[in-house]
């Protein structure tokens, strides 16, 4: 991860922490940003399973339900 991406991840942590009123000391943010990135990346890998288990996204619904052609 380059410096710009790391800064973006850390900014995301600050933003999310503020949203959920979670006090996070500045020196903990780099490690927390890395852990959150890893968590989101891991959860990304189960996208197909999540679609299979439903409720589906609009795209998965449209892709998976038979259509009768354009009116």
């Amino acid at each position: 991860m380059n410096q710009e991406e790391a800064a973006r991840s850390q900014e995301r942590v600050r933003h999310l922490a503020e949203m959920v009123s979670l006090p996070v000391e500045e020196d903990r943010i780099p490690a927390l940003a890395e852990a959150l990135d890893a968590a989101l990346a891991a959860i990304d890998t189960i996208g197909e399973l999540a679609d299979a288990g439903g409720p589906p996204s609009a795209e998965a619904y449209d892709a998976g339900w038979p259509k009768g052609g354009r009116r």
């Binding site: 927390l32 989101l40 288990g53």
Partner: peptide, 25 residues
């Protein structure tokens, strides 16, 4: 603390994907 902080920051979208994926597994 590390574990709880990450859990607190994960968005609702992640939670729903985990729930859905659980049914699939």
């Amino acid at each position: 603390r590390d574990r709880v902080e990450v859990g607190a920051l994960l968005p609702a979208d992640a939670w729903f994907r985990l729930r859905s994926a659980r049914l699939a597994v």
